[in-house]
Design a protein around this nucleic acid. Structure first.
Ligand SMILES: NC(=O)c1ccc[n+]([C@@H]2O[C@H](COP(=O)([O-])OP(=O)(O)OC[C@H]3O[C@@H](n4cnc5c(N)ncnc54)[C@H](O)[C@@H]3O)[C@@H](O)[C@H]2O)c1
Ligand SMILES: NC(=O)c1ccc[n+]([C@@H]2O[C@H](COP(=O)([O-])OP(=O)(O)OC[C@H]3O[C@@H](n4cnc5c(N)ncnc54)[C@H](O)[C@@H]3O)[C@@H](O)[C@H]2O)c1
Lengths: 227, 227
DNA sequence: GCGAGATTGTGAAAACGTTCACAAATTCGC
DNA sequence: GCGAATTTGTGAACGTTTTCACAATCTCGC
């Protein structure tokens, strides 16, 4: 299969979670996830009228190391004040800007089944700036119409609406057989991020970012730890 | 807060995902997750009547490096045949045994709301050996009774039933405010693994394994990659 | 049965991520 | 205002995970 000079050259070795580029620096995926954790912790602090926080306190809240908090933030700038810590509100604004959640993001959900409906009914995403305003299914049933005020469209309209409404992010909750086909259409229509609940590894161009929520794997790996 | 000799000694630095011990070797959490991926890929191969697979083929399927596949498996024994590869069915059985999914595992779900109902209605877990046969809620409503044949009990019965039915794993889909309180009760009743959908870091003893499914964070970090 | 070809299992190297440790900067009580 | 106390930002050390590379092993067609 491969020449003797280059054993295993067919391995593409592209690990699911890789790092992003911002300006010149590479940002590890783990850092981005923690940024999001920090944002939430800061939100809680703000709600409790706490105005300053140290890296040690923030780390403690989340079970992390304080140096890690400082290093993570240092990827993006200098937000702290030596001898004081971080201004809660200010840091939170910075992080929201870095994450891009200081603007509204148009989101569509595809596959209005059990899981899809649960996600549509969840208000939490809206509060974070995600406008999940379009839902699609192959079958527009009675029980679908206007799930929690989100209109359900037939998938034949998918491509048009994605383009017209500049939908950037899609939540995918269709049956496994349909996933790759839908993904191909999404990519063509210009979607560049997918939150995929379907246990299928999707083939997409590099510029499309996919996060997998794989509940079966979470369950199985928990099983491993049951002694 | 800390003595000058030991700066940052209050940092507990316990990273959410740490490794498990099996026998003498430490198994990284990432390895366990991949084991689960391998199992699924093998299942697909078996369905397609494929009887042998090489580490390169398996890796290719999942976008991984072939050496990683071999190293992962090598934690647990020697399952391959040089010059041939792995016997699909045999390897799958080995992995199921390692993961502990070759037996039935009793699972309860707590919080029969939007998300909880979606999970209860999902047949996929059952097929993997997870018996999600008990559901709990503070309110046993009409719409609950017998969601997909799973009886819904009042949370007052939680502790008793967990003990009586030897429930080891719990799926948690309650509101954030209730999460820690429920977690404490679960731990007392003997639960040792929790799949937590609630965006709250749970405080539990070390022997309790928690996996977090944090959809808000998945969405936020996807947002980061939108250019 | 034999030998070319395939593929494993695994040390060693490379890449990556986390933690330590401390100089520099700032705060804040007096 | 001053100085002790605090806390940041960051190089360097450390630890972990991934990838490379290849000897050892087995297959399978002839
Ligand atoms: N429900 C869960 O708890 C759960 C758990 C883990 C994984 N999943 C995964 O999530 C996905 C959805 O699960 P579910 O339980 O909601 O299934 P479901 O069958 O209830 O819903 C799937 C929906 O997708 C629609 N659909 C089918 N083909 C389509 C297409 N080509 N385009 C658009 N819509 C299409 C169906 O009409 C249906 O409404 C599945 O891939 C499943 O494996 C679900
Ligand atoms: N639905 C989603 O798509 C979604 C997305 C991300 C996160 N979550 C998280 O999942 C959790 C559940 O979300 P949901 O949308 O299903 O909420 P929900 O309000 O629909 O359901 C919560 C259920 O928990 C029950 N409950 C309340 N207190 C309880 C207690 N002490 N013990 C047992 N049951 C109790 C309620 O009666 C209700 O049935 C929340 O923490 C939410 O943040 C949900």
């Amino acid at each position: 299969m491969t020449g003797p000079k280059s054993p295993d050259s067919s391995d593409e070795a592209q690990n699911p979670e890789r790092s992003a580029v911002l300006g010149e620096k590479k940002i590890p995926a783990a850092v981005v996830k923690r940024l999001s954790l920090y944002t939430r912790a800061l939100q809680n602090l703000e709600r409790n009228k706490v105005e300053k926080v140290s890296s040690t306190a923030l780390a403690g809240e989340l079970g992390l190391n304080s140096a890690q908090v400082r290093k993570d933030l240092a990827y993006f700038g200098q937000f702290g004040v030596p001898g004081f810590g971080y201004h809660v509100g200010e840091l939170r604004q910075h992080l929201k800007h870095i994450l891009g959640t200081d603007r509204e993001i148009n989101v569509a959900l595809i596959g209005v089944g059990h899981l899809g409906k649960a996600l549509l009914s969840y208000g939490g995403f809206h509060r974070q700036g995600f406008r999940i305003m379009w839902a699609f299914d192959v079958e527009v049933r009675e029980s679908h119409v206007g799930v929690e005020r989100v209109p359900v469209y037939h998938t034949s309209e998918l491509d048009r609406i994605i383009r017209e409404e500049s939908i950037e992010l899609v939540i995918l909750t269709v049956p496994a057989e349909a996933a790759q086909g839908i993904a191909d259409r999404l990519v063509k229509a210009g979607v560049s991020a997918i939150l995929n609940f379907v246990p299928t590894r999707l083939q997409t161009p590099d510029h499309v970012k996919i996060h997998y929520v794989d509940l079966a794997i979470e369950m199985e790996s928990l099983s491993f730890y049951l002694r």
